[in-house]
């Protein structure tokens, strides 16, 4: 968001997950959002077939973080040819867990009166960053010290035209919390924590050089090598 906009996590534009030609005329596009701790799958269903579609239902395969529909897919009226509807499906993280490849992959089955259709989509890992992910500063220091060196991964994020405070505020909107900030030799060092819905903590150090749009991020976590997704 720009100046004066409320902060919140980034929501990607919807993309086509199921093209009509692969689903007997049903087109599904969607995206994911986390709003105030509620996870939602925002879907657009379009009927590109010649006949009416009814009896919609949705199911997920088991996945890395136990994402599951928290209720039925609410398509309350039949979908006529050329009609489009938007549906928000609330999700829980209490479904069955199985590590997926890639980690953030979600396999979905949608049925209607015509057939059952399958597609895969990928969610941003920030979907499962919880609101109480700000680690106590002493705990952060102790944890950082205890994490083995080979659990650390380094990334460059290029072309970020924000100063460290603006970046920090923006990241907080996605539940990435800055615990401490220090400036050493012209570099801002931000120490950050993230907590996932399954209780895993991720610790990060972000380095920002004034005037350099490329950030360096060091991430520490002990399980699942999830740094690239984060």
């Amino acid at each position: 968001g720009g100046v004066g906009m409320p902060t919140g996590s980034y929501v990607a534009p919807k993309t086509v997950w199921l093209p009509a030609m692969k689903a007997k005329g049903l087109e599904i596009s969607g995206t994911f959002a986390r709003r105030g701790g509620i996870i939602q799958m925002d879907l657009t269903l379009t009927n590109k077939a010649m006949s009416v579609m009814t009896d919609f239902a949705i199911q997920f395969n088991r996945n890395s973080f136990g994402l599951a529909p928290a209720g039925p897919l609410q398509v309350l009226t039949p979908l006529s040819p050329n009609q489009t509807i938007d549906v928000s499906l609330p999700l829980s993280t209490s479904g069955p867990v199985m590590k997926m490849e890639p980690l953030n992959n979600l396999q979905v089955a949608v049925k209607n009166n015509i057939d059952v259709f399958y597609f895969s989509c990928q969610y941003p890992l920030s979907l499962i960053f919880v609101e109480d992910g700000k680690m106590e500063r002493q705990v952060f220091l102790a944890t950082w010290k205890d994490i083995p060196n080979d659990s650390e991964a380094q990334f460059q994020i290029k072309d970020i035209h924000l100063n460290s405070d603006a970046a920090s505020n923006k990241l907080q909107g996605s539940n990435i919390f800055t615990i401490a900030k220090r400036t050493v030799e012209g570099q801002d060092m931000l120490y950050q924590s993230v907590k996932l819905t399954n209780g895993i903590w991720v610790l990060a150090e972000m380095r920002i050089q004034t005037g350099n749009p490329n950030y360096t991020v060091n991430e520490n976590q002990e399980t699942w090598r999830m740094a690239p997704f984060i």
């Binding site: 002493q138 220091l141 220090r182 050493v184 060092m189 060091n218």
Partner: peptide, 20 residues
């Protein structure tokens, strides 16, 4: 007093990461 210690510990951490 404890807070001072934590503040200092973060300064030392940032320092050590910049000049290992």
């Amino acid at each position: 007093e404890l807070e001072d210690g934590v503040d200092e510990a973060f300064s030392r951490l940032a320092e050590s990461r910049t000049n290992p």
